[in-house]
Every structure is written in structure tokens, then in C-alpha cells.
Simulated assay, not measured.
Amino acid sequence: MSDKGLELLVNKTLEKIDNYRQTLEAIISFSHVLKWDDENKEFKPNSYSFIARQMDTSKNNRIKPNIEINPDLIVQLDENYGIVGEVKKSFPQNKGYWKSNFNQIQKYDDDLKGWLTPSEYIKTADIVLLTHYKIKVDVADYLEAEIYNKNLVFNKNFSAIAFSRVQEMKTILTLEKFYGRLFDKELDERFRRIVRVPLDKVIPLSDIKFYDDKPELSYMMEILWNKIFSQYPKMEEFMESGGIKIINIEVNVDKLTQELRIQFTDSIESDTRQPELPKAKWVKEAMDMFVKLNYAKIENLAEDKYTVKFKSIKNTIEKFTKEIIESQNQKGKKGNLNNFL
């Protein structure tokens, strides 16, 4: 593969990773605005947000009755009011393929079961589509035409909100309602006038790194390397080495998966409606790639045990992305011996 071809593939993967991150930023920022009490500077009591929560449709659902569904976002403001959200940073260029996406959203136009209430139902639930501001005009035009022609029907309040990451002195995420309305008039007016969310303050409060779409492999590897493996060495040992010394770390897939779920998801123990994210097979795939690239070796295949050769790496995600692509185009060749082993 030429250097130019490699660069194009690396940049394409990094763009997908950034899209994944922006989707998470939109989910976290939107739920934060809904739950945050500006006056008391804390989350409102009895408010909750869930990513990909399992909900049940009713027998009257006009798209898919009596099935389990997993909306991208469930936000419960109190026992009587909640919002069901779907996040689509982009849509296919051919609008003929949009129908399935909006059929998914129409499944939420129902008395869904699965809310965190005694009955698991809620009195009022709005439906919100979060999408990128660059396509908000196309989305608005599509909605107006399809609803006018009765190809799309919403009995509950439905609105579409555009998000955009903006780099100023600090990075902010803007949220602007461009279609429909919310049941809560105060929230409706607030989103109509654009909400600015400071990501440096909001993201640390909900350090979620996964939703139910599988991330790129190098994204998973980067989180394992910088967020999980870095916790294993004793601090004095790591500081003495200046981050240069290679430190052996013994890990297994089950434990790594649990650590990721505890630290980087909104998982609630014993809540069976919450999905198990990240999936163990995503972690397994990442560990096997570490082996292929000579950052780790298998100790016990049956028990998914590995030894990782850990040290500090600069530009981790770019490095892993490049090496994965190179390995996929060099079948039969051994990994780079500079990767510690």
C-alpha cells in the first residue's frame, strides 16, 4: 500500500472515531441540560438518563408491537415526564434510504414500558431526534414533506434538535431545536434559542465512552491502553521508569470488560434493562489485535488471559489505527518487533 493510500485509510478511520465521540458528546450534553438544576448547581432529584435502555413496545405499536427496543437515549426528568431520544449524526445521501431510520423513531411513538417508575410506565414522553446541524435543513424538509403526506405520523410530541461542536476559547457543544415542540414549554423555548454546553465541564461529570454501536477497534484499544492498563502499574514503579520502562500486566477479558463498564458507562448494577456495554467480544477483539501487533501475548486462550507489555505511548490512537491498517494489508507478516516483544 502506498503512503498516500495508508494516510487516506487512517484519516477515514479517525473521522469515524470522531463521529463516535461527537455522538456521545451529543447524548451526554442533551441529557445533562435536561437533568441539571442551574439554580442549585446539581442534578435534579429523581432524574435519570440511560443509553440504549431496553424498552418494551405495546400491542398497539403501529410499527413493531410487543417487542424489545433500545432507544439511543432515555431521559427521565421525574416520575411523570421523560424523553426518548434517537441520535443520527448523519443520514445516507439518498433520501430513499431514510425511511428505515424514521420507522425506528416511530416505534417510540407508543406507551413504552421500562421507565424507572413503580409501574415502569410514564405519563408523558416526548420523542427527540438529535442530528448534526449541517443536515438540519435537509432533515426539516424531509420531516415536513413526510408528515404532510402522512408517511410519518407522531401522536406524541416530536422534535428535532441539531448539535454542533464549536471550538472557541474552549470547546462547546450547541443544541438547537429546529423542528417540532416539547411538552415542557420552558425546555421547548430554551432549545429554540440554542443551548451552549461547555464540554470541559460537562463530560467529566458523565465520563461515558460507549453506546450500543460498536466503536472502531483502535478506539477500544486506546481506551484500554490509556485508561485501564495505565491503572495497573504501581505508581512508584511507573514514575521511576519515566514511562519508558516496559511493565508486564496480566489481564483477562472478563475483568477488563467489567472495569470498562464500571468506569465508562451508565450501567446500574442489578438493572436488567441496561445493556451490557461494552460487549465482551469488543474487548476480546481488541486484546487479540494487541497480540497481533506484539503489544501482548496470550497466556491462556481458554480463559482469555493475556500479558500486556505496557509503557507510555504518544499519539496512541493514531499509532494503533495506522498499525491495524498496516497489519490488515500485510497478511502473513509478523508484527513490528519495536512493539516491545
Rank of each mutant, 00 (worst) to 15 (best):
K4D: 12
L8M: 06
L8W: 04
L9Y: 03
T13A: 06
I17A: 10
Y20R: 03
R21M: 00
E25K: 13
E25N: 14
W36C: 07
D37Q: 09
D37E: 09
K41P: 05
K44C: 05
N46M: 10
Y48G: 01
A52N: 15
M55N: 03
K59H: 03
N60E: 12
N61R: 00
R62V: 07
I63G: 03
P71F: 00
Q76I: 04
L77P: 00
L77A: 03
E79C: 11
E79R: 14
N80E: 08
V87S: 14
K89R: 12
K89E: 10
S90V: 01
F91W: 04
P92E: 04
Q93C: 04
K95I: 05
F102L: 07
N103D: 08
D109T: 02
D111R: 02
L112N: 01
K113M: 06
G114V: 01
S119Q: 06
T124H: 12
D126K: 05
D126M: 03
L130D: 10
H132V: 13
Y133V: 10
Y133S: 13
K134H: 01
I135M: 08
V139N: 01
Y142A: 09
Y142L: 05
A145Y: 10
N149G: 00
F154M: 06
K156F: 09
N157S: 09
A162H: 01
F163L: 05
E168R: 08
M169D: 10
K170M: 07
T171W: 03
L173A: 06
T174H: 09
T174D: 08
E176H: 12
E176Q: 10
F178R: 05
F178V: 01
Y179C: 03
G180H: 03
F183L: 03
R196I: 09
R196W: 11
P198L: 01
K201I: 01
I203V: 14
D207F: 14
K209G: 02
F210G: 12
Y211L: 07
D212G: 12
P215K: 02
S218F: 08
M221C: 07
Q231L: 15
E236T: 12
F238P: 07
I247C: 14
E250G: 15
N252T: 06
N252R: 11
V253Q: 12
V253L: 08
T257M: 08
Q258Y: 14
Q258N: 13
E259F: 04
Q263C: 12
I268C: 13
E269F: 07
S270M: 11
D271L: 09
T272C: 11
R273D: 13
Q274L: 15
L277D: 08
K281M: 04
V283H: 01
V283M: 02
K284H: 14
A286V: 02
M287W: 06
D288M: 13
F290E: 03
F290H: 02
N294F: 15
Y295F: 15
K297G: 00
I298V: 15
E299Q: 10
L301C: 11
A302N: 15
V308G: 12
K309D: 09
K309T: 04
S312D: 11
N315E: 13
E318Y: 10
K319I: 08
K319W: 12
F320C: 08
T321E: 04
K322G: 09
E323Y: 12
N329H: 14
G332A: 07
G332T: 05
G332D: 08
K333G: 13
K333A: 15
N338L: 14
N339I: 15
N339C: 14
F340T: 10
